[in-house]
Design a protein around this nucleic acid. Sequence first.
DNA 1: GTGACAATCTGTAACGTTTCAGTATATAGA
DNA 2: TCTATATACTGAAACGTTACAGATTGTCAC
Lengths: 348, 348
Amino acid sequence: MDRQQTEKDDEASGQGRPTLKTLAFMTGLGVTTVSRALKDAPEIGAETRRRVQLVAKQIGYRPNRAGVRLRTGKTNVISLVLNTEREIMSFVSDIIYGVSEVIADTPYHLIVTPYSRSQDPLDPIRYLVETGSADGVIISRTQPNDPRARYMLERGIPFATHGRTDMGLIHPYHDFDNYAFAAEAVRHLAGIGRRRLALLAPPVELTYHSHTLNGFTDALSDVGASEIPFNTVSIDHSIEQIRMRTAQLMRREARPDGFVSSAAAATLAIVAGIEDAGLKLGRDVDVVSKQSSDLLHLFRRELLVVNENFRLAGAELARSVLGWIGGAAPGSLQSLSMPTEVLAYRRD
Amino acid sequence: MDRQQTEKDDEASGQGRPTLKTLAFMTGLGVTTVSRALKDAPEIGAETRRRVQLVAKQIGYRPNRAGVRLRTGKTNVISLVLNTEREIMSFVSDIIYGVSEVIADTPYHLIVTPYSRSQDPLDPIRYLVETGSADGVIISRTQPNDPRARYMLERGIPFATHGRTDMGLIHPYHDFDNYAFAAEAVRHLAGIGRRRLALLAPPVELTYHSHTLNGFTDALSDVGASEIPFNTVSIDHSIEQIRMRTAQLMRREARPDGFVSSAAAATLAIVAGIEDAGLKLGRDVDVVSKQSSDLLHLFRRELLVVNENFRLAGAELARSVLGWIGGAAPGSLQSLSMPTEVLAYRRD
DNA sequence: GTGACAATCTGTAACGTTTCAGTATATAGA
DNA sequence: TCTATATACTGAAACGTTACAGATTGTCAC
């Protein structure tokens, strides 16, 4: 091309980040054609398509996110909404990695949207929806009647919940089968002769509280064991509180000889409380606990554990949201993860 | 206004998200004026400015991020770059919350950019810089000669490192004083009569390896204690490896009577290894460990701990990056956090 | 040779914002 | 009265992308 370059061409060949204009200039095509060629539109010639895609790869073209977002409204963002105070620590890192793993070879970015104790949990969701900051949202600490899920369902924004709701509304979720966990835990404790069991449950407002509780009580009556009430604390309480309440409980006549604990950190507190009361784990009392990283058996080898894989949860949740964004039916994007067997690390 | 509305006015008063056009229509001003009024530009009348800002607040106007980003290149995004395999678990959640806390009342969003073992750590940085995906970056696992810091310094993109570099280049950082930690740990162990000390250090490639090691050896010669080499493992190794190596070490003649451990999870493994060898914590050997959440004393009450606050680190790092973006001198955005005293939970 | 049609490509406008280069109006200086 | 200057405002253009509505070919039937 020996014609004189216009200003526009000049700009297009400049050394900034390549844009569609750059590609159009290089291939001698129009911007529109280039745009369509890159997304395999049908009305572009096979030869042209290949040429454009080749050049694009060569010069490392990457669509400008702001351009796409402004024009189409598509943000290519997934938001993970987290409670800054109450979220389980290993949950945060594992779920992030799980999500990351899945969105790694997609154009999606992961943004973390935190909210604190003081705030209405709906606040961050409202913010996201009102500002159109994400194509999809992942929430945790799901409640049976969850205003956040309802809100997003009403506005038609794709989301997935970690944990189920119970509102008669259909949406993607991933959940761990806490009913099965609690039931299995009770059965295991009964199997080693424990008869008076206490449950350290999730906080009442979360859906998996009742799942856990139901699994616990159903299995209790199955095996003919009895419950020692322990509902002055939940896994949301501080380590100190749980420890104190456990010690209190263990000093009573009718103390439990078995615990089921829904969280690893809480289990540390339970054990401390047990020992505060002068009792011994594995002899006076056994504890079955969920854990998400394989550390509890180092703590006390007598501990009985069930593993919950948060990384898997993150991956599943991400898949669900992406699926919904991609047009799949929300009802087809629900998954439940089964607990492992109760693992004993005791070596006698 | 009883004149017939034009199409544009119609659109502007529509119920979509309010834009500058909406505000312009409502106030009867031009878009430009509205834009300037909102950012307190000098050539706007005081009365007009107030009126515009009032209306903006009333209807909940929020600037469209894509619009701003496309026009100005400003992303209003901070990226936290994390290694999906090697990052300390509590670090991830705490640092995220620390960062969140600081950017909460700014327009910034936090995106998490992960990379895995297999990748060059420079990959995610290159991606961010090439695609202009963030205004600022936070990296961890900092090395003395860190290619990522060098790369970003060359391109002039604001960042902060968790940990220092040693390249003679100036950039914002936040670091925990690991020299002081290790020295203090050694002194404490010496104070309770321990003489043969082993160090479980961070991986050699990270800057704080040598900080820790120097603090350790300097204090050793101060107090006249000796080092039992324990450098076949680092805190990056698996729990099993550390446990095995510790047990091995403790079965030797010249075994240590004191440990300094740079990470809480690793400490669990050390203790397990000690007990595997049939020895008792607090009697045969003492262990000083860093921890970021207050759980180690529940694990074994004999453990000696020093707390490292990752949430604070996250907040400091965020402040640093924002400061740099805001034009502050990089050299003025460096901070070092002092270790607490060694805390003993033992109650005899 | 004409019309119809498919195949392939293209220019323009728009998304919401900021910047540039103005345009009006009022005030003051001569 | 005229010009200069400051004050307060405005339209047009641009960032990079996609959607819409053409435009230009070539092929084929008749």
